[in-house]
């Protein structure tokens, strides 16, 4: 595959996530999506870069800010919209929502409403992969906000101790909910990894190609060695902690600068400079809009699960 074809694929994948989240934001504002949703706008390059090297048998445990992570792994859009609209056609039949979306068919072990909640799930899944011996791996997506959680320490220790094939993937957006992360964590992830003899890698998320190149190397190494690795990617959080958060706690100049560091705009400029016609990019946009509107309509047509069926879900039989 030529480099340009790959770049166009990644551009489409990132735009798809961005447009889905823009649509989710509008649906949330219109009252069609209840509760909290946490947008990953600005962070799309991480999941897109990583997921290129994951198979359907690899597993991921994702954060509350997990739309990009889930879509990049293969979550069907109609099932995503239906889930977030609380409908039966959602992957979790409308019982989970954005913070608990899961899909067993693609190895998505659930988003999590608990900061750091993804870490032991991925570690446990990595244990299962090791016992299975089939060369699969688990990805623990987490944010810099999880670094101050004790469970992070426990999980990296365990994975290092037992050589579990787990990728600790830190999407560092600099914000721990409503507070700057440097007011929350005095440590350094690189040194933390070193303390456990775990390989550490870092790149800027602005350039999806940089993420992709590093991801290929890292994921290959985890499959080969069955040892955990840490990959930290710095990204920007365009929206608030959740949709509707006006981010009054952020300096407007800093926020504008953050929004200028857009991995999609960055790649778009690169593609145009490479000679790709703007009309080709516009065509991608049109195709994605059509795909998304079809998915939204499928979701809207789905009923809400009956109360009895919901009650029957409490226990497995």
């Amino acid at each position: 595959m030529s480099e340009i074809t790959e770049l166009l694929q990644m551009y489409r994948a990132m735009c798809r996530i961005r447009k889905v989240e823009e649509r989710l934001s509008a649906l949330h504002k219109a009252g069609d999506i209840p509760g909290f949703i946490h947008s990953s706008m600005g962070q799309e390059s991480v999941a897109v870069g990583i997921s290129r090297y994951l198979t359907v048998r690899d597993t991921i445990a994702v954060t509350h800010r997990g739309h990009a992570q889930s879509i990049a792994k293969g979550l069907a859009l109609s099932a995503l919209f239906a889930e977030l609209m609380g409908r039966e056609a959602g992957t979790c039949r409308g019982l989970g929502g954005s913070m608990h979306i899961a899909d067993s068919s693609i190895g998505l072990l659930g988003a999590n409403g608990i900061v750091g909640g993804s870490l032991p799930i991925a570690a446990g899944s990595a244990l299962a992969h090791k016992l299975d011996g089939a060369g699969n791996l688990a990805v623990a997506y987490f944010g810099d906000g999880a670094l101050a959680e004790g469970i992070f320490h426990e999980c990296i220790n365990l994975c290092a101790l037992w050589s579990l094939p787990c990728l600790f993937l830190c999407e560092n957006n600099g914000w721990s909910e409503f507070s700057p992360s440097d007011e929350q964590f005095s440590g350094d992830l690189k040194k933390f990894a070193a303390a456990f003899n775990v390989a550490y890698h870092f790149t800027e998320g602005l350039d999806v190609s940089a993420v992709t190149q590093m991801a290929e190397h890292i994921i290959d190494a985890i499959r080969t060695t069955s040892k955990p690795q840490v990959f930290e990617v710095s990204v920007e959080r365009f929206h608030g902690h959740y949709e509707g958060d006006a981010q009054a706690y952020r300096d407007p100049v800093e926020l504008a600068a953050a929004r200028a560091r857009d991995p999609i705009a960055h790649l778009r400029e690169h593609l145009l400079a490479f000679g790709i016609a703007a009309s080709i990019l516009a065509q991608i946009d049109v195709e994605l809009t059509v795909e998304i509107e079809i998915a939204v309509n499928v979701a809207r047509a789905s009923p809400v699960l009956s109360t009895n069926d919901a009650f029957a879900m409490v226990y497995a039989s």
Partner: peptide, 26 residues
Amino acid sequence: DQRVLDFPVSEAALVGTAYGAALCGY
């Protein structure tokens, strides 16, 4: 030692990873 896993003293990770393994068929 692949069936009897002697865990470090980390109760949160102990149950958390058991849960992750249970999601994956164990």
